[in-house]
């Protein structure tokens, strides 16, 4: 007789329903309450509350000394954040759109990301750089990019990309407490904003109180046995839609939400592909030289024989994001393209 010792399930935690943006704000507010060195600065983060509601209510609660509206000079205010961080504060700096990295990249990758290394580990830069990413609402080629592959490519920064309200809270708490610079990228389509297209998956239960999600740990968003979809951010929601719609036909899709790009949870990718033998990578960033290739290389480096069929990559073809709605939907990795890739993978 075998006795299987099942560990007691953890007691269910009290939770409440929030949108992703409110969950993000809850984490920031809790950390600002807990730690006076935490403060937030950026364009329109005060009275406006963040153009994608990343800071709603924080100014009223914590005042203009700790929630600071800045002029439109990203290089200056990211530099301000870096200076404050090396002096022991824990700033959260918002870059309104990731697309704007072009005007301030030197501060990000040559200073924020390298000071710890260049000081021989003597100087820490405990700051969070928050930034809005993603398309799907006709905002044009300079306001719709994800670009997480670019940030993740440059060494010295952690990169997190939550897709759910609970992860938005847990990863924000972890990012603020981390002694390294962390890029926190929130997709506008997962925030649960009333003026965006309705997304039922952007409102969900969020644990009460102190809540952290470890940086560098992926999440199995849906268990399945036939094919692995490795993805992140809004594409997790689309992949779950597809998984649910093909489940009735007996196609069992596993969805892996990476949550962090740096560090990348390669173990989670290998574990899932080891089980299914089929891999679809869904990435709203550009296809070439980026995340989708890195995920495939992770499997190929380990053992290409794990793959029973060729990999399918569903990403933005290497073109700027169009403004026209129909054209934009044609390049974004939405349900139609994901479903086609899943069907191709399981047919093989």
């Amino acid at each position: 007789m075998t006795i299987i010792d099942t560990p007691a399930a953890p007691a269910p935690r009290a939770s409440h329903r929030l949108t992703t943006s409110k969950a993000m704000v809850e984490a920031i507010a809790q950390e600002m309450e807990r730690d006076p060195s935490v403060f937030y600065l950026g364009e329109d983060v005060g009275a406006y509350g963040g153009i994608f509601s990343s800071t709603t209510g924080l100014l009223e609660r914590f005042g203009p000394q700790r929630v600071i509206d800045t002029p439109i000079s990203e290089t200056a205010f990211i530099g301000l954040g870096i200076g404050a961080a090396v002096e022991g504060m824990r700033p959260i700096v918002e870059l309104m759109f990731a697309d704007f990295m072009g005007v301030c990249l030197d501060q990000i990758y040559n200073h924020m990301a390298k000071i710890h290394y260049e000081s021989g580990g003597n100087v820490k830069v405990p700051m969070v750089l928050t930034t809005a990413v993603g398309g799907g609402y006709s905002d044009g080629a300079q306001h719709s990019q994800c670009l997480w592959g670019t940030f993740a490519h440059l060494p010295g920064m952690k990169v997190v990309v939550p897709s759910t309200p609970a992860d938005a809270k847990g990863l924000m708490t972890s990012a603020i407490r981390d002694d390294n610079p962390v890029i926190y990228m929130f997709h506008k389509g997962v925030m649960g904003l009333p003026w965006m297209a309705k997304n039922a998956r952007s409102t969900d239960d969020v644990p009460e109180g102190d809540y952290t999600v470890p940086i560098g740990k992926a999440r199995v968003a849906r268990e399945g046995s036939d094919v692995t979809v490795v993805t992140l951010s809004l594409s997790v929601h689309h992949a779950l839609d597809v998984a649910e719609s093909v489940a009735g036909e007996g196609i069992d899709v596993e969805v892996i939400d990476l949550r962090s790009l740096v560090p990348l949870d390669r173990e989670a990718i290998l574990t899932s592909v080891g089980k299914t033998g089929r891999l679809v990578v869904v990435d709203e960033d550009y296809c070439s030289f980026g995340l989708s290739g890195e995920v495939v290389a992770t499997v190929a480096d380990h053992d290409p024989r794990m793959l029973r069929v060729p990999v399918q990559r569903v990403a933005v073809p290497d073109v700027p994001i169009p403004y026209a709605h129909a054209l934009e939907y044609a390049v974004l990795p939405r349900q139609d393209r994901i479903e086609k890739a899943v069907r191709t993978a399981v047919a093989g």
Partner: peptide
């Protein structure tokens, strides 16, 4: 005082 809903009028929520 529990949050129960979010509403919107003319883009103001």
């Amino acid at each position: 005082d529990q949050l129960v809903a979010e509403v919107q009028v003319e883009k103001v929520s």
